[in-house]
Design a binder for these strands. Structure first.
Length: 867
RNA sequence: GGGCGGUUAGCUCAGUUGGUUAGAGCGCUUGCUCGACACGCAAGAGGUCACAAGUUCGAAUCUUGUAUCGCCCACCA
């Protein structure tokens, strides 16, 4: 039953929670419960938010995009499913909790609480944050299947992590290696290359000689590391230093241990940069370590320890000293011994740990790595090759096993990253995370999903990089390998994510899936931009510009927030958050509410014959359905939302409903059309549309709008001639309105115009909307009757439209088309073109030719009717 | 150093294979309380689409170059 007691303005608070509850109770978030014969699965795995706190507006954007896609696919009749979940986010969460504990007065949480004690604190925090996050996701209207809720650190996911690890271990892809890794002193843990951020700093570049008798000067920004130098590298063709290549010098560096400096040659040294020679510190530089691997005879000396203090290797005077002090001391020594050649300020990038924010120290140590270049047994290719294949040819050249990236420019970025990919350091020395499933007992090593039988086995104390588990998200959430969900829903259909985690996450999902499942993790991935604040800054805790989505929702409603986030953005481009935009979207929601209110107040006129207005709106709606569907099919969410917005407001409300107020015209299909619009708007603004659908009463079924069918366009309704005619009428009305102004006709007065060439309905519309009357002939002289004595001004329509201008326009158009057609005729008579052009291009050209010819004919007749 | 993106109305931004007079929201001006909506209605002002050259019957859109802003990666002696 239609509800005639609607409030004047829509109040989201009264409806949103109730509506979400209705959805949940229906069970339709779970695709197994969806009505109808649905066969095609359509799974979307929610990018699991970190359990490090609360969600921000960026998550709101993600949820909106994801939910639009899911709701659209559900309405298309697929078994649409969003699998929700959260990520334990190893380092990030531990760092956050340790930070909180320190703020609360604990000096060294790890020491004071111990492994289990600290883990307990982190677990508490994570659970707390998890429940906040899940309720926020509900608030955003996300149609997630809560029965499949997952967590990267729950039992099932942990089992799968271990299984994949074991598989990789047995395949020799996971290995223990000694090499330089990124070490965070503050975090007391390694970090992968992708967990670094860069900060530009001004530092001193020191140019010096190790000793007075050492022939080659070198430069550095980290003088204390020079106490660990074992070589100087020069370019092989550098004549200045050629004579020294191959020699070894023993240099005395004051209080430190004497250094054995080998002079080596390497092509990577740029002879034009600095002194043209490079002091090689194998222990504290990843690139120097590579030189060491090529020239192992030079040796390696670690002079800074994990604690940031100088080691014994640095010499008795330096041992135990914080590296910053050591720097001062060594620089002072160089100065006082006249070895310092120059000191200049330069700006350079410093690597920081993205979680602990301290400067990264490259250090050599034993860690676990995943080899990306080693051939996988039985597969004949490396992980790197698989990662490349998955987005180019499809795995093993199978195009059904291919990931399509939208917008496609991100494919290039991805491939570029793959090319530079190095082995991935996966072990972390923090405690919060999946413990490495390796046990040792004396000389024995065991790798397995669970602990080995027997006593005295000791498990590796390290944990896995958090991306090791999130990289398996698409199949771990489905219970790989034996769950029926996995068989049904993997590969997932579609995935969305921000471009900032393209490498961190997308690449890893592709890698793990290609390796473990031998398939892609998803068929399509949509990359969206980052949401920034109104000044273009990233939202972050440190800038203090965070906005709680719940505050926005409380003020404007979820639908308004969703619409504002999606509208007016381009795929892949960053966007900014403006409250004005939300207010605008709120106005739109309210407009829709009032349109519905108006429609429910009308009496049903279903039997009435279609009026001009009806035929026109049906034509326009058919076109709208086609366009919006095609936009959504190509993930043009913003464009689709804008088309709907414009249509609802400026065509349906401002024009169709206004026309319907001309009582003689009536309106046959107001409610039907509104329902079609509600369906199309539902993915974008699920709450208000669901509420309104209930108010106006769904025509076909009593089910929720959420599971209603996506409208289909009726091609027969499309009447482009009628559309054009309407545009002309709108222009005429607008012309009449300005004439009223020009002749200063008072609002109550009627303007009389010559109505030749217009149908009765058309005249009706114009007479009402522009308040004019139509005369059948001109019975006046224009100049004399501009202002008549009878409250009426009579004008020929020629005055309303500028006939001369119109004629010129049409003539130009005709000329343009004729020119075009002649060029096409030449093209089509060219045998080279006809025989070489791809058939579809040829076909397209011919079609265009026909289309344009028809247009030309049309214009010619229009010109005639004007004259 | 390599790559990617931006430069369109006062502001914030759309503009998918080249095609009528380049759009929206906000802001601004004027007028409206005429059967839903002032979170509204109507009218209006405002743009050499960063610049230059080229391709084309036709360029905001394609090509080349320049300027400028931003992001990512590499380097960081």
């Amino acid at each position: 039953m239609p509800d005639h007691d609607m409030e004047k303005a829509y109040d989201p608070k009264q409806h949103e929670d109730k509506t979400y509850q209705r959805w949940e109770e229906s069970g339709y978030f779970n695709p197994d419960n969806l009505p109808g014969d649905r066969v095609e699965p359509y799974a979307i795995m929610m990018p699991p938010p970190n359990v490090t706190g609360v969600l921000h507006l960026g998550h709101a954007l993600e949820n909106t995009i994801m939910d639009i896609e899911a709701r659209y696919q559900r309405m298309l009749g697929k078994r649409a499913m969003i699998v929700p979940g959260t990520d334990h986010s190893a380092v990030a969460t531990q760092a956050r909790v340790e930070d909180n504990l320190r703020k609360a007065g604990m000096e060294n949480p790890r020491q004071e609480l111990g492994r289990e004690g600290l883990l307990e604190k982190i677990r508490e925090y994570a659970e707390d944050s998890k429940s906040t996050i899940l309720s926020q996701i509900r608030k955003m209207g996300t149609s997630a299947d809560w029965s499949r809720l997952a967590y990267t650190f729950d039992e099932e996911r942990s089992r799968i992590v271990n299984e994949v690890f074991v598989k990789m271990y047995n395949d020799g892809l996971v290995y223990r290696g000694y090499r330089v890794v990124n070490w965070s002193i503050a975090g007391q843990s390694t970090a992968s290359d992708d967990e670094l951020e860069y900060s530009e700093r001004t530092t001193k570049l020191y140019t010096f000689k190790y000793s007075a008798d050492f022939p080659i000067p070198i430069a550095t920004v980290l003088p204390e590391t020079k106490l660990g130098d074992t070589a100087v590298a020069v370019h092989p063709s550098d004549e200045r230093y050629a004579e020294y290549i191959g020699q070894t010098f023993t240099v005395n560096v004051g209080a430190a241990k004497p250094l054995q400096i080998h002079v080596i040659a390497d092509d990577n040294v740029d002879p034009a940069y600095g002194t043209g020679a490079l002091g090689v510190t194998p222990a504290h530089s990843a690139s120097d370590f590579e030189l060491y691997e090529k020239n192992p005879q030079i040796g390696l000396i670690q002079i800074v320890g994990k604690d940031g203090l100088m080691t014994d290797e640095a010499g008795a005077d330096y041992a135990g000293m914080p590296y910053k002090e050591a720097r001062e001391k060594f620089v002072e020594w160089l100065r006082s011994n006249n070895l310092m050649i120059s000191e200049e300020d330069i700006t350079h990038n410093v690597s920081l740990s993205d979680r602990f924010k301290d400067e990264i120290w490259p250090m050599p140590m034993e860690q676990w790595f995943v080899s990306v270049t080693k051939e996988i047994p039985g597969r004949g290719k490396s992980l790197k090759a698989l990662m490349r294949e998955a987005v180019t040819t499809g795995l093993n050249g199978d195009t059904t096993k291919k990931v399509t990236i939208t917008p496609d420019r991100f494919e290039k970025i991805y491939l570029q990253w793959i090319d530079n990919l190095r082995d991935w350091c996966i072990s972390r020395q923090i405690w919060w995370g999946h413990r490495i499933p390796i046990w040792t007992r004396g000389e024995e090593t065991y790798c397995g999903v669970s602990a080995p039988e027997g006593d005295n086995w000791e498990q590796d104390s390290d944990t896995l990089d958090t991306w090791f588990s999130s990289g398996m998200w698409t199949f771990s959430t489905l219970g790989w390998p034996n769950n029926s969900d996995f068989a049904t829903y993997h590969p997932s259909a579609w995935m969305q994510m921000g471009h900032e985690i393209l490498r961190l996450w997308m690449a890893r999902m592709i890698m793990f899936s290609a390796y473990a499942v031998e398939d892609v993790p998803f068929h399509d991935v949509y990359i969206h931009g980052i949401l920034r604040d109104k000044d273009g800054r990233k939202f972050s805790k440190s800038s203090g510009n965070g906005i709680d989505p719940l505050d926005v929702i409380a003020e404007y409603g979820t639908d308004a927030l969703r619409m504002s986030l999606i509208k007016g953005i381009a795929p892949g481009n960053d966007s900014r958050f403006y409250e004005d935009k939300v207010a605008d979207a709120r106005n739109f929601v309210n407009k829709l509410w009032n349109i519905s209110r108006f429609v429910t107040m009308q009496e049903a006129q279903t039997t009435k014959e279609a009026s001009l207005a009806d035929r026109w709106i049906e034509s326009r709606v058919a076109q709208l359905i086609t366009e919006v569907s095609s936009d959504l099919d190509s993930y043009q969410f913003s464009q689709a939302s804008e088309k709907l917005y414009d249509f609802v407001w400026h065509e349906y409300a401002d024009w169709y409903i206004e026309m319907s107020k001309v009582s003689e015209l009536g309106s046959r299909g107001q409610k039907d059309i509104l329902e079609v619009l509600l369906r199309m708007l539902h993915p974008f603004m699920p709450f208000v549309t669901e509420v309104l659908a209930e108010k106006i009463g769904l025509s076909e079924t009593s089910e929720l709008l959420m599971v209603a069918e996506w409208p289909k366009a009726d091609p027969a309704a499309i009447d482009k001639e009628l559309d054009k005619r309407m545009v002309t009428i709108q222009e005429l009305i607008s012309g009449v309105r300005s004439l009223r102004k020009e002749y200063q006709v008072k609002p109550g007065e009627t303007l009389k115009v010559l109505g030749e060439g217009f149908s009765k309905d058309e005249q009706l519309i114009m007479s009402r909307l522009a308040r004019i009357e139509f005369a059948s002939s001109i019975d006046y002289k224009k100049s004399a009757s501009a202002v008549s004595g009878e409250d009426k001004i009579i004008l020929p329509l020629d005055d309303v439209i500028d006939v001369e201008a119109e004629r010129t326009r049409i003539q130009n158009e005709i000329a343009r088309l004729e020119k075009y057609l002649s060029s096409v005729a030449i093209k089509l008579s060219n045998e080279g073109f006809v025989s070489n052009a791809p058939p579809e291009v040829l076909e397209q050209t011919k079609q265009l030719q026909m289309q344009r010819s028809a247009e030309l004919e049309h214009l010619k007749s229009a010109l005639e009717s004007l004259t």
